[in-house]
Nucleic acid binder design. Structure first.
Lengths: 218, 218
DNA sequence: CTTTTACCGCGACACCTGTCGCGTTAAGAT
DNA sequence: ATCTTAACGCGACAGGTGTCGCGGTAAAAG
């Protein structure tokens, strides 16, 4: 679980530390953070999101309750911190050779991530409704993912599959939104056909001129 | 607040009452239900979803805490009951004369409903992550709405705007999902242009042959 | 090494959440 | 009118959640 030091206080909205005041991010403080974050994942898998209380995390990590409350404020803050750590991974968008294949592969990843029993993504979505810190972390995470996925669209344009201009973000949202809608909002069961269908739909719309910066309804 | 008697026990998963046992849905019981449900709305508007506790509802309605817990189990059950009452309204899909106009009007309704400060829809989505009763009620509500909106697609086919067959539900999901994605999952601010863009995208995809029961990629 | 103080452990605390048993009330049946 | 009992009111209770003040520990500075 790689942890970047620079994000030591992420997930908290009272952002900036006093400019010249001495802080202590090293030694014991860092060890406490590692212990706590290391306890979140297993607890999430074992007891699900509803079983993920600050108390349980404190007990498992061996850190005192009050310390966890002071540094992370609530469960959302904890999830936000682990998400920020996870967001700094080396994930890249799939590259299957064609736009529809890329989008389909992307959707299948999304469906897998959202379908597993104790999904971190699902837990964070739930937490984002009760914790501002979790909501912010989720937004940052998705924004980062959209940025990386934009490469998929750029490749498609370079191959001549799409005529520029194309708003990558709108296209990606159109391709993935039906999945989230079905799995998260409607709490539906995974549908093996849905990733492909949503990808195909988005590609058809893109070829017909949607997602251009200027509307050409044709 | 019209309340249909038949739904007296909706939102509870231990569904069926003993077949020949005598129940008492009238008189005091009905009055208690009305008092409680009447208290949910105002509390939701005043204090938001986080301030909507069973205790607060009980206090405002004048009904004892234990009674509310017994009949509705949790906040999700309360919201589910309110939603079932709201689902029995006379809402019909917009009819503007063309498919894109209908979808755009529909999306604007969705955006308005989701953007208001203390949105019932938003609260129910949040509750659906913590309460099975709320999740079921939400699914029922949306399924009902999709059924009513199918008329929009049928009219479009009748006018010759689309060539059958067209899966109405998939088209409606594609048209509305980007809105939910932006407003609910990304917690984004309302975007006046988004309803129209999403509607146009869905129409373009539909004209290109998406949503047909058989794929014709063109 | 000594000093400073950021951060942590600790226990107490007020509040909220959900359940239970018991007595009472009144809806529905006779 | 009378009886039966479903549904409610009531208070107590255990457990969880979040905050606070105090004292101790150990980073970081000198």
């Amino acid at each position: 679980m790689a942890v970047t030091k620079k994000e030591a206080e992420s997930g908290s909205e009272a952002a900036e530390p006093p400019p010249s005041a001495a802080r202590r991010p090293g030694g014991r403080t860092a060890r406490v953070r590692d212990q706590v974050l290391a306890a979140v994942g297993p607890l999430l898998v074992e007891h699900g999101f509803d079983g993920l209380s600050v108390d349980a995390v404190a007990a498992r990590s061996g850190v005192h309750r009050a310390t966890v409350y002071r540094r992370w404020r609530d469960v959302g803050g904890l999830l936000a911190d682990v998400l920020d750590a996870a967001g700094a991974d080396r994930w890249t968008a799939p590259d299957t050779g064609c736009l529809e294949g890329d989008l389909r592969a992307l959707n299948e990843e999304v469906q897998d991530a959202l379908s597993e029993e104790s999904s971190l993504a699902r837990a964070l979505i739930a937490a984002s409704f009760r914790s501002a810190g979790a909501a912010d972390a989720l937004r940052r995470f998705w924004e980062d993912r959209y940025e990386r996925c934009a490469h998929v669209v750029e490749r498609a344009v370079a191959r001549g599959e799409l005529a520029p201009p194309v708003e990558a973000r709108s296209l990606l949202v159109a391709a993935t939104a039906p999945l989230y809608h079905h799995l998260v909002l409607l709490h539906g069961a995974p549908d093996p056909a849905l990733p492909g269908e949503a990808a195909r739909t988005a590609v058809l719309a893109a070829r017909a001129g949607a997602f251009g910066t200027r509307s050409r309804t044709g």
